[in-house]
Design a binder for these strands. Structure first.
Lengths: 276, 276
DNA sequence: AACAGAGTTCCATATATCGGAACAACAGGA
DNA sequence: TCCTGTTGTTCCGATATATGGAACTCTGTT
């Protein structure tokens, strides 16, 4: 089990790049950093834009981009702008379709949606962000996939906070140190102390609220899904507009949400147990 | 001009890998090949599985995997199996949300769906495959995103064939040579000659049919979206079960489909024109 | 024409990767 | 219990690869 315990006295693998907390990944690291720039950009960047942002020499950048284009991870339009490549979609599509966590959770999400009648989310903690793995909307008016794969800060979402509450204090503090707190709304927790206090409450309560902390007018109740043996830290939530989600209503939803979360954890254990 | 003439006697840079026809992309190429293996696998592979499939030495493979894991492109479960990473979803989500082709096409897809009442697809040609960029289903019963990002062979789908018909003969033949023809149904075109003949018909007709060539019982009409200035080769289609899509019905849909495709091309030109 | 900006190519050098082999961890079998 | 095969991880010299500075091309501008 101590498959990661070996690094006892290592001071810090990489503290230069606050963005990417990972250790040195050499060539690949630069490539995905570049990919990230292209994917994050609001407007498709041209060569020179990337040149400024990365600060790399022309030749290197050019080669890296060429490789990424050849691999289909980035597209180069005839007018010289770089856009994320289609191959990313293919990869993600497969990743999503076969994600066993999502597959196990799906029926429970559906059931939860049926009992509450509101939007249900499934999210996973990745670094300091929540990545939404699945979503069942109450009204199909808005495009569904607009959310799947999306990510949001952990500190201001129900699923995010409840996921953080599963972590060890050590891990929790480490991640908090890396967060940047933006005040999305008036209710957003804007510093680590407030977040830690909130997490203590969540721990004793057993589930989390999001009271318009990320989007004004949107509230939710979230329960954690923690399966260390499967390497899963995430959660589910029921989300609704504020006028439909008063305090007593939210509390009423907490039961079903927690029940669904427990059921998912149980299913994961069942799937994982008899393996091999 | 002689920018590659230095290597006069080297037999051939890369003829080992018939799968990937791209030029040498060095380290990155190996990394994404590995990622591809993990993403394609039906069951999440363990280290040894990958060792066999890649034929690489242990040390090298181990380092590559570690880098991919550190970058979040691959997840390593505690039980030692490798699964596609969440970061792929994040990348794809952004790529999809900002894809200007999709954004431009969306209103036209909606309109086409309203006029026909059937499922509408938007696809882009990538190598010899069609990647579905968007989809509007007639019945929401089935999960929508199950298709977005999915890919299918070009030779047996409506959007695929009509996209191929836009290419130059030279390009077309080159791609045909790389295809492997599987008979998905009895109607599937199973060799290059049949495909080329079909494409000639499509060119003169102006649109393509898929008469249960990919999935039994599913037919469609597709029109191409070709905008060389934007580097776009793709198409849209209206898809329906065979019993609802008789010959006369399909022909009736052809008009709206072609009209929508033309409108999209026009919109693309409009967007692309005043740029810069 | 001359210029500036953007993009591409070249080449010596530093560096990351390679791949073999040794090293751990763990399983079952005798 | 000890052995033995399987699986996964780490190390290190040789080598192939990426690096980055500079030269070069092409386009549109003054």
């Amino acid at each position: 089990m101590p498959h990661l315990s070996s690094n006892a006295d290592r001071p810090d693998p990489a503290e230069l790049d606050p963005q990417n907390a990972a250790g040195d990944t050499g060539t690949l690291g630069k490539a995905v950093a570049l990919l990230d720039l292209v994917a994050r950009a609001d407007m498709p960047p041209r060569f020179t834009d990337l040149l400024k942002q990365t600060g790399q020499p022309r030749g290197s950048l050019h080669r890296q981009l060429r490789h990424l284009v050849l691999e289909g991870l980035i597209d180069l339009s005839p007018d010289g702008v770089y856009t994320p490549g289609l191959r990313l979609l293919q990869f993600a599509s497969r990743a999503w379709a076969r994600n066993s966590f999502r597959l196990v959770a799906e029926p429970h999400l559906t059931r939860l949606h049926e009992t509450t009648g509101e939007t249900v989310h499934l999210g996973v903690l990745r670094d300091c962000e929540i990545v939404y793995l699945d979503k069942i909307e109450s009204r199909q008016a808005v495009r569904m996939h607009s959310q799947v794969g999306n990510s949001a800060p952990a500190y201001c979402t129900g699923v995010g906070k409840v996921s953080l509450s599963c972590l060890s204090d050590e891990d929790l503090h480490r991640r908090c140190a890396r967060m940047t707190f933006d005040a999305y709304t008036q209710a957003t927790l804007t510093d680590a102390a407030a977040l830690l206090a909130e997490i203590e409450k969540i721990r004793s309560r057993g589930f989390a609220y999001d009271l318009e902390e990320h989007q004004p007018g949107i509230r939710c109740v979230a329960a954690s899904i923690h399966a260390p043996a499967a390497g899963i830290v995430g959660g589910i939530s029921v989300t609704a507009p504020a006028f439909r989600a008063g305090p007593e209503q939210l509390e009423a939803w907490a039961g079903p949400v927690c029940a669904a979360a427990s059921a998912i954890v149980a299913d994961i254990a069942r799937r994982l147990g008899p393996r091999r």
